[in-house]
Nucleic acid binder design. Sequence first.
DNA 1: CAAGAACGATACAGATCGGTAGCGAACAAC
DNA 2: GTTGTTCGCTACCGATCTGTATCGTTCTTG
Lengths: 224, 224
Amino acid sequence: MVFSTHDWPIDSGVLRGESSCATLLLQDCILWTPRMPRADKRDDLIDAAIRLFNRHGYHATGVDRLMEETGIAKTTLYRHFDSKEELIVAALVRIDEAARDELRAFVEAASGDPVARILATFGQLDIWLRDKEFKGCPFVAAAAEFGGANDPVFQQVRLHKRLTLAYFEELVRAARTPDPRRVARQIVMLHEGAIAFAQVLGPDGVADDARQAAERLIERRPAD
Amino acid sequence: MVFSTHDWPIDSGVLRGESSCATLLLQDCILWTPRMPRADKRDDLIDAAIRLFNRHGYHATGVDRLMEETGIAKTTLYRHFDSKEELIVAALVRIDEAARDELRAFVEAASGDPVARILATFGQLDIWLRDKEFKGCPFVAAAAEFGGANDPVFQQVRLHKRLTLAYFEELVRAARTPDPRRVARQIVMLHEGAIAFAQVLGPDGVADDARQAAERLIERRPAD
DNA sequence: CAAGAACGATACAGATCGGTAGCGAACAAC
DNA sequence: GTTGTTCGCTACCGATCTGTATCGTTCTTG
């Protein structure tokens, strides 16, 4: 390890197939200076790792494939990361931050109505599910490929899910819904379920169905 | 390939950590006859494959690990299956049949009330989520590790999800719920979401929350 | 300009990957 | 009992895996 953690810029849209800001800057600057500062290498590696891991899985993606994709030497990779596992964790950290930032941005852009803010999350979900690079939840895939509860990869997955769940609980509490913890868990389940569903059967109507289901869970019933 | 497909006995409980009938018979008969008929070898291979693929993932499980686990020689494996991919597909086929049979059995055992039959599926889900060998949906994991829509593994995954969805739609139609196709999709999403949720955050209360959410989706509203 | 860090290229290590060849032993069916 | 098949065992193939060693070059910084 060379750099302290969390010194890279947060990049939204990583989950979708967009090239990151760092990559775009690289494209502009490559004529200005043939050698770029060190942080960009690490950024490029993580970006390519996210793309390839998402496309082919974690074990199926060898470091050699990463070299071909980025043009970065293998020695450089292992100067930034002690192991492939560390790169995987770094990729998950970036995806976590990007996904939660984007979710937050989508919610903030929605109307002030707390219920509408919750339902807006399914709008972001719909965009993601329809992305051509979408291939299921990278965290669920990582949890499936990596084992025990002590595994660093699995711990990062759990952290992401806990943070996401906490955010949804915050949204549900703002809507003054009864039993907010349970409803938040149910809405997260709808998100996860929609992701798995779309991964196998395609994205059409999936986010809409999930949103309508969430609407039913939030709405007040006369019995209450 | 030596045997025609679908000539092995359907084994319920494969998703849970139970040893299969074939394995138990082997334990008893090994003193009676040192050489067992051929179908058992294939059964044992598929059973061990299901166990190991579920535990460590598909790419991470090498055929050598399968040999250690079963004591079967590698040549025997490749006499039954042309490739590892074919073994993976065979494993998915068996899981599919076992899971859908078990689901059906759970529903039949429930009361005749169509709504209660739907909610009974979450009882089976709860048992599975609490199993010590539970590690997420093997089909979602396979879809994540194997790529394109033309991949045989992915096609088997899609077939399973389609059949499962069709069965749920059948259950929902029996309940005379409005918009049965959508409700069936939503209930399947709740199942998938509960699986992913429990995979990362643990099984406690997950199936209950999902069932309660399904209840809300099924119940008639005064507005309708 | 000089010192030090980062990088690329190559080559390699040791292990494991999926898959095959050849052989003898143990079974099944006739 | 003979014939044909299935099995286990061993050894092997070429490819790929993660990770390292070495060295010359290039950028950055002072």
